[in-house]
Design a protein around this nucleic acid. Sequence first.
DNA 1: GGCCAGGTTCGCT
DNA 2: AGCGAACATGGC
Length: 315
Amino acid sequence: MKKTIIQLTPIPPYDFALVAAYATYFQGRYAADHFQDRVYRRLLEIRGRLCLVKVRSIGSVDAPSLEMTLKCNVLSEKIVSEARIKVAHLLGTEQELEPFYRMVLKDPVLNPIVKNLRGLHIPQTLSLWEGLVLAILGQQVSSHVARIMRNGLVERYGLALKESGETYRIFPRPEALVEAGLEELYAIKLSKRKARYIFDIAAALASQERDLDSLRSLPDEEVVRKLMEIRGVGPWTAHWILIRGLGRPDAFPHGDLALRRTMGHLFNNESIFEPEEALNYSYRWSPFRSYVTTYLFAAIRSMAASEKVSPNVHI
DNA sequence: GGCCAGGTTCGCT
DNA sequence: AGCGAACATGGC
């Protein structure tokens, strides 16, 4: 294994520990992401080779700097530069938070919550395929059940590399699921419905019948429209992908139950918002609604992780 | 045991 | 258009 070290400079403010914790749902390991002992690790497939990246902070929130260690059988210049791009994407290092923070100053309820999470950028899925699968696995079920399915998928179908006693896995390729077959997906706790959705998407991608990357150049509404043509993708999933897969700043999954509850708690005298009410209320945060969504979820998630209680009514 | 969870589809009026 | 049911698992 060859090894090289390079440096990344995120746009400040950037709280590496918070971003990495969010990427792993404050659980240390989540799907293909690891964050333990202040080090973020992920196995990537770059130009057909398995490469392990480790990232740690060597700066501060206001003067951020990341040290990335890349281990790979072969280390060409192209591999190094692709790894850099992928990691910058995964960890959202290029996102600008200041305009969002200026907007939030005008919201006395949101402002303290956001201040408390200063430097949180939005982690991105490596591919739209990954975003689509993770989102579908998260539909309707509790976050706990979603985690079991997401981890199970990666453990079962992701190519692995062992390093100092730990096993790392890439997020499974569509081909891996197609090869395994539809029935195999039931074994990792997917409902027949979810297995069908994901298997069909995998098959369409593997056969090149569908191309998700063409969505990257389209405006938000077009992306949503195209994504919802896919069976298994509704409005919630499409907006989740805008936020976590495409890095769009102004998406808002207004049907989301946890979001409706949290917003109702904060802005509606404790009582849950109806989806339309949540949407109407959200326009005041445009064009930064993806950040509002992410910060509200981060507030819920970090409390759930630290307090070990159901976060339904907290914040 | 029954109800619910960071939804979506399908089949009814 | 709008509404209800089915979906399947783990936790309380």
